[in-house]
């Protein structure tokens, strides 16, 4: 219960306002809170279509900016395409990744898991701030 709602109910209990007035005040409070909540999480859930990567940096005194927008549908299609990679190619890729210091077993990565990852990307927001660069990864 919010502080304002509690105040209204206290006033009602103390007899300072009538039940109708309390109802009107609570309704007005809810109207005010709805846009505020929408502003806090402005992205409508389930409606996101794009993965955005925005990088603002300063390189040798020159400002640089990378702004990439990728449709989530493209990520899903890519996952399906990646599922066609033959196992022998995955074994070679594993060996190369291991040699490069990235010990990831790609054969353990199932297409369903990747699809689930893409499905939940809309809830992901990554922000990295450093003195020279700002990186934002989000969905819209």
């Amino acid at each position: 219960m919010t502080e304002q709602r509690k105040d209204i109910l206290d006033m009602l209990a103390a007899g300072k306002i009538t039940a109708e007035e309390a109802e009107q005040l609570i309704a007005a409070l809810e109207r005010d809170q709805a846009p505020a909540a929408a502003g806090h999480d402005a992205r409508p859930k389930g409606k996101v279509k794009y993965l955005r990567v925005v990088v603002d940096a300063t390189d040798n005194g020159e400002p640089s900016r990378v702004n990439v927008r990728v449709p989530l549908q493209l990520l899903r299609a890519g996952v399906r395409l990646a599922a066609l990679v033959p196992p022998q190619a995955l074994v070679k890729a594993n060996a190369s990744l291991s040699d490069s210091g990235v010990p990831i077993d790609l054969t353990q990565l199932k297409p369903e898991q990747l699809e689930a990852l893409v499905e939940h990307l809309d809830e992901v927001t990554v922000e990295v701030d450093s003195p020279d660069a700002t990186v934002r990864v989000f969905c819209e």
Binding site: S64, V68, R69, P71
Partner: peptide, 11 residues
């Protein structure tokens, strides 16, 4: 799925 993709790089 390509429509909507956009790559914008400024240096």
């Amino acid at each position: 799925a390509l429509p909507g993709a956009r790559f914008d790089i400024e240096q």
